[in-house]
Each structure stands twice: as structure tokens, then as C-alpha cells.
């Protein structure tokens, strides 16, 4: 059972997450939506793309789904950015709007994750205290290097790699820096989602996952011993063989 203050905190956190998500949508898609409304010949596809994040947000909030809140909603903003008119996109990619959007996005990710993990994870963290030792540090520090590289290498590509910068110049004459910031924002969004879903969340739930995987492994072992798993494995192997044969025939043909 949730206590009174905890429940109130959760409601407040939910409201803050909604406000931040709507603010993010407002900063990225509202200009495009208003442009479509004001221009007489509104493109229905662009109109739908600008409304897509809000449509994705409603079930994400009501179901409190981590996948929907932390992945689908941010990803749904990308087509809307791509559908923005050139002038509006140019305004968005100037330094301060870009900083404001990335700041809002970072705060949104942090608060949404805090809201998602606020109640159930308290128990897991307490149970997992004994697990925080050398293995835990090894996992975190071992993954931190690739994560930093995942940020640095695309950033280097966007701003410093000669073939990519020349391609950007060719495709965006007179607006190279705007295009660079646009690509940088898209890649930062991607990196933030990766960092959260594949690094931060697993690092917070290691003890829980260890128990879950152990349970699943025990179930699989029991299934192997009873013979049921072998049949499933045979069917799966057959499907893989057929798939590989089809691919091989495609290349041969």
C-alpha cells in the first residue's frame, strides 16, 4: 500500500513529467503545427506528424510504460522535427533554442525515470545492497567507456570529419551550421535514450535482473530435463536453417 505523502509525490511527479513532455512537444512541434494551421493548404501528413508525439504521450502516461515514455515518445518527436518548415527548423537550430530543447529533454528523461522507478525500486535497491561490490563496479566502469565513445564518435563525425562536413555543406548550402546542429540534436536524443535504457536502468536493477535470469534459467533447465525444450529447439533450428537457406539462395540467384 502506498502511504499518503508518497502517493501525493507520485502524482506531483506525474504532473511534472506531463508538463515537461508537453513543453518539449511545444518547443519542437508546435511551431510546425501552427504553420500548418495558418497556411491555407495544410498537408495532412505533416499535420499528423506534429500531433504524433501527443498521441504517443497519452497512453505512455496512463500506462506508465517505461518503453513508451523513454523511447516511443522521444522517437515520435523526430519525424515532427523532420517535417518542420525550413525557416522554423532554422530558428530551432540556433544556439539557445537548441540548448533549451536539450536541457528540457535531459530534465524530462531524469524526472520520467525517477517517476517510473519511484515506488517498486525502493524494495529492490534495499535488497540489492549486498550485490554492490566488485562485480557491480566492473559492470559500470566497463560500460562507461563505450558509452562515452558512443557520444564522442558521432559528434566528431558531425563537426570534424571532412567527408561528412563536406556532404553537409553540399546538401545544405548556406545553412551548414543549422544542419550540423540538427544532426547533433538527433544523435544526442538517440544517445540519451541508449544511455538510459541500456546503461542506467540495467545498472539500477542488477540484483533484480540476476534473480529473474536465474529463475528463467532454472525453468529452461527443467524444460530441457523434461524434454519439452528439445522439441522447441528443434523447431527453432529448422526455422533458422530454412531462413539461412532462403538467404543463401537469394545471393546465389
Amino acid at each position: 500500500m502506498q502511504s499518503g505523502p508518497l502517493k501525493t509525490n507520485n502524482t506531483t511527479a506525474a504532473i511534472v513529467v506531463v508538463v515537461l513532455a508537453v513543453s518539449l512537444w511545444g518547443q519542437l512541434s508546435l511551431m510546425g503545427l501552427l504553420y500548418e494551421v495558418r497556411s491555407g493548404s495544410a498537408d495532412p501528413l505533416n499535420f499528423a506528424l506534429h500531433l504524433l508525439p501527443i498521441i504517443a504521450l497519452v497512453p505512455a502516461i496512463t500506462t506508465r510504460s517505461p518503453l513508451a515514455l523513454l523511447l516511443l515518445f522521444p522517437v515520435s518527436l523526430l519525424p515532427s522535427i523532420a517535417a518542420l518548415p525550413e525557416l522554423e527548423r532554422g530558428q530551432l537550430m540556433e544556439l539557445w533554442p537548441a540548448v533549451r530543447v536539450t536541457g528540457t529533454f535531459a530534465v524530462y528523461l531524469a524526472l520520467a525515470s525517477a517517476w517510473l522507478t519511484s515506488v517498486p525500486e525502493q524494495v529492490e535497491v534495499e535488497q540489492g545492497k549486498s550485490f554492490r561490490g566488485q562485480s557491480y563496479r566492473h559492470f559500470v566502469w566497463g560500460r562507461l567507456g563505450p558509452l562515452v565513445l558512443l557520444f564522442l564518435v558521432p559528434t566528431y563525425g558531425i563537426f570534424l570529419d571532412a567527408p561528412i562536413t563536406s556532404t553537409i555543406e553540399q546538401n545544405n548550402p548556406g545553412a551548414e551550421s543549422v544542419a550540423q546542429i540538427f544532426i547533433a540534436i538527433v544523435m544526442f536524443f538517440t544517445w540519451a535514450v541508449i544511455a538510459y535504457t541500456t546503461f542506467l536502468v540495467p545498472a539500477l536493477n542488477l540484483e533484480y535482473d540476476r534473480r529473474r535470469i536465474r529463475r528463467e534459467m532454472e525453468t529452461i533447465l527443467e524444460e530441457f530435463e523434461s524434454g519439452r525444450r528439445w522439441m522447441r529447439l528443434g523447431v527453432e533450428a529448422l526455422v533458422v536453417c530454412v531462413g539461412l537457406s532462403v538467404i543463401a539462395l537469394m545471393f546465389a540467384g
Binding site: 563525425g157 561528412i164 546538401n171
Partner: peptide
């Protein structure tokens, strides 16, 4: 694990190239 994480850099680098080509 580390090999796969580093291999993914190739895909993200290609993604940047594709974005540059619109």
C-alpha cells in the same frame, strides 16, 4: 559485450552519414 558495444559505433557513424545525405 564490449566488442558489440564498439561495433555499434559503425552503425551510428553510418547514421550520421545518412543524416548528412538527408
Amino acid at each position: 559485450s564490449i566488442g558489440l558495444s564498439l561495433a555499434s559505433l559503425l552503425f551510428f557513424y553510418r547514421a550520421v552519414e545518412f543524416l548528412a545525405e538527408k
